[in-house]
């Protein structure tokens, strides 16, 4: 037994990748349908959007990037559907250069996005119920400028002057925002500083798994209202909104992959302990 654990420790790591690849491919071919239970954080986000009065201004910072792929895009898609379904005024803006590409992908459907989102299906009209202002470069400086003057882009993403878009009458500065939801893998502290601390606008984050631990302290201090974390956050939200999409479909893959990692960590630690007991290094 001890010898076999030692042998397992010396195995080429590429075999582990192969086992993992085979294992995570199983639920794609035959979905397992493991249950998903929404977390308190996802429920909090859902209840907040549900409780917004009609014609409230919801700003979405679509700063997701291709690098964070399915994690942020699935969150963006499901929140977009929920906000479109409600009688709310939706302002979408991107503070990352890849944002416009992924915003378009949500409407067109495709890899890491799932089926296309059609705002007309929810009775929403472009320019009246929702608008996309495009990419604003500049990081934290841009956060400040946009909060002070939401008309700073002068036109929307397709070049229509903002004066011609009735929705923009609802949104002049951050004082008009009822909530801002940012999908981003970085610059969280800067967003908190310039939007929550400066204007006390409730701030919800859609974050990749790598950024989630940092959010807990900001939620505990009340600086961040709540968050959706990684693919699991999107899947939970899909369950809450009854808009089952790509995230829920991918959860089986994620669960089996994580089980494989846990097994590898346990075997690795057992091997380490055995080696130590036998006096090795």
């Amino acid at each position: 037994m001890i010898m076999s654990i030692k042998k397992l420790m010396e195995i080429d790591s590429r075999y582990l990748y192969l086992v993992m690849l085979i294992l995570v491919s199983i639920p794609i071919i035959q979905p397992l349908g493991l249950p998903i239970r929404p977390s308190d954080y996802a429920i909090k986000v859902y209840n907040f959007i549900e409780s917004l009065p009609p014609e409230s201004v919801v700003v979405i910072d679509a700063a997701q990037t291709a690098g964070y792929g399915a994690e942020l895009q699935t969150q963006y898609v499901v929140i977009l559907k929920h906000v479109l379904k409600k009688d709310l005024k939706l302002i979408i803006v991107s503070f990352s250069a890849e944002g416009p590409m992924l915003v378009d992908m949500a409407y067109e459907g495709g890899i890491i996005s799932g089926k296309p989102v059609d705002p007309a299906k929810y009775g929403d009209v472009y320019g009246e119920d929702y608008v996309y202002l495009g990419y604003i470069p500049g990081g934290e400086t841009a956060f400040v400028s946009f909060a002070r003057d939401c008309w700073m882009t002068k036109t929307d993403a397709s070049g229509t002057p903002l004066e011609e878009l009735p929705i923009m009458q609802y949104c002049k500065t951050a004082e008009d925002w009822n909530v801002i939801i940012a999908f981003t893998g970085g610059n969280h502290e800067q967003r908190i500083a310039q939007w929550y601390n400066a204007y006390l606008v409730p701030l919800i984050f859609g974050v990749p798994g790598v950024s989630a631990p940092r959010m807990y302290s900001y939620m505990a201090s009340g600086q961040v209202y709540s968050m959706l974390s990684s693919l699991i956050g999107a899947a939970e939200y899909e369950i809450l909104t009854n808009e089952i999409g790509l995230a829920a479909a991918l959860m089986d893959v994620l669960n089996l992959g994580q089980l494989c990692v846990v097994a590898a960590v346990i075997i690795g630690n057992l091997g380490y302990i055995v080696t130590r007991i036998r006096g090795g290094k």
């Binding site: 995570v24 792929g69 890899i111 798994g209 693919l231 991918l250 992959g257």
Partner: peptide, 26 residues
């Protein structure tokens, strides 16, 4: 805390991989 961060990072990487893998198979 670091263990939690590692687990979350692992989950995130898997989430991205699974999205691409699903499309590869489909």
């Amino acid at each position: 805390g670091l263990g939690g961060a590692f687990a979350n990072t692992g989950m995130g990487r898997f989430a991205n991989m699974s999205g691409v893998l699903l499309n590869l198979w489909n």
